[in-house]
Design a protein around this nucleic acid. Structure first.
Lengths: 217, 217
DNA sequence: CAATAATGGAGAGTGCTACTCTCCAAAGTC
DNA sequence: GACTTTGGAGAGTAGCACTCTCCATTATTG
């Protein structure tokens, strides 16, 4: 198959495929001449993977490149695998917004960061990841953002989110195949692509739940 | 407070605040002269809301504007409220990728869309939203993307995601305050800002879950 | 075997988003 | 009364994801 065939099979314009080749998102085909190369099913799969990660999971091409690197050269230890998966997670939607100076000038200056400690407590209660894991800092940022927006997240509400996360994670882990390469793919790609699914299901469930609670205003 | 005070209190540059004013993301201050206006706490709150929605929830300014419109002019019926919330959800991460012609040319042309029916089945089983709800189409797109990327999502895995969604939705609905304006804010903004929290918790829970399953390769 | 089409490769240009910068005259501050 | 700040508007910038244009080969077709 030549590049036009790859374009046909994937629905991606030739110009875009050339761009992916240049950007290293797609491995080169087997050259048959100076200006000719053939592509196979591995190319079709890779293009479809790139499109799924950008269109469905909303990743930037830079992050997609990192994901592909991990898939092509799977980490040896389980720990490294999860680390890689989470590194990608952290890269989602831009890096952390470098601490903007919360100039104290208000009536009360917070002694210690209350969101950081709340995040740490939650993690400790569930015996989840390490206290110094970057995910904890991220969670603290997200809680701080919610508070800044005037949303107060009750302990019960947060606990429900944690409970749901446990349910999902158990199923995630159960779905991981035995062989290493497949495992990496399943964890990294599977998680990234089911993130939006989870959010969509949440919206659907909200409709049902709110219909059951006909409030009397 | 003048614009520089607003900038100080929110940590957002004056230039950006002026931009928000021009774009209609921030209501004008009360003018005290031709080239002077004062801002109050409602402005501080609004700026913090805009930043939370863009930085934490990852919304574009266009979508943020829609959210603000809903908050400023709350829909009267509960149904409209959820509709508005979901409209925003659908606008997340760009509109649906207009159906790219999946040129049939392969050996087998699929009779009916298997992902659409799977999505419909799931919704029907849980008695969630209507079958023709745009969310169902979105879910189908997401399932299709996962499949195209070589991820096969088992019924058990999908069921776990649905179960988690139910858990979260129940807590979401329970957290809604009685008065209308607060309810809209809680549902729309609260959901948008806890979406990333849920995904972060999922990653944390995955670490814990995988640590418990030391597999023998 | 000559006319036409497709290919790989690389540079430049496009459209969109979210700012960021520069000006300006009027208003406030020291 | 010099200096700074403000509101307002236009223009410029940076990053992202393409998309377009060229061009010297190859490949295909009549």
């Amino acid at each position: 198959m030549r590049i036009s065939g790859l374009a046909e099979r994937t629905g991606v314009p030739v110009a875009t495929l050339k761009f992916y080749l240049r950007e290293g998102l797609l491995h080169a085909g087997t050259a048959t001449a100076r200006t000719q190369a053939v592509y196979d099913t591995t190319h079709v799969e890779r293009v479809r993977l790139v499109r799924a990660l950008t269109e469905s999971a909303g990743l930037t091409l830079g992050v997609v490149r990192e994901v592909l690197t991990v898939l092509d050269d799977p980490p040896t230890s389980r720990h490294e695998l999860l680390g890689a998966a989470q590194h990608v997670m952290l890269a989602r939607e831009g890096a952390r917004p470098q601490e903007h100076a919360e100039l104290s000038g208000g009536p009360s200056a917070p002694a210690a960061d209350p969101w950081a400690s709340r995040a740490a407590e939650l993690v400790a209660a569930r015996d989840w990841c390490a206290e110094d894991d970057p995910l904890v800092a991220r969670l603290a940022d997200q809680l701080r953002a919610a508070d800044a927006a005037g949303i107060d997240l009750t302990d019960a509400h947060l606990a429900a989110l944690a409970e749901a996360a446990d349910t999902v994670a158990a199923a995630d882990v159960a779905s991981v195949p035995a062989e290493r390469a497949g495992a990496v793919r399943q964890v990294v790609v599977g998680t990234l692509l089911t993130d939006p699914v989870l959010l969509t299901l949440r919206r659907m469930a909200q409709q049902r739940a709110s219909a059951g609670v006909e409030r009397t205003d």
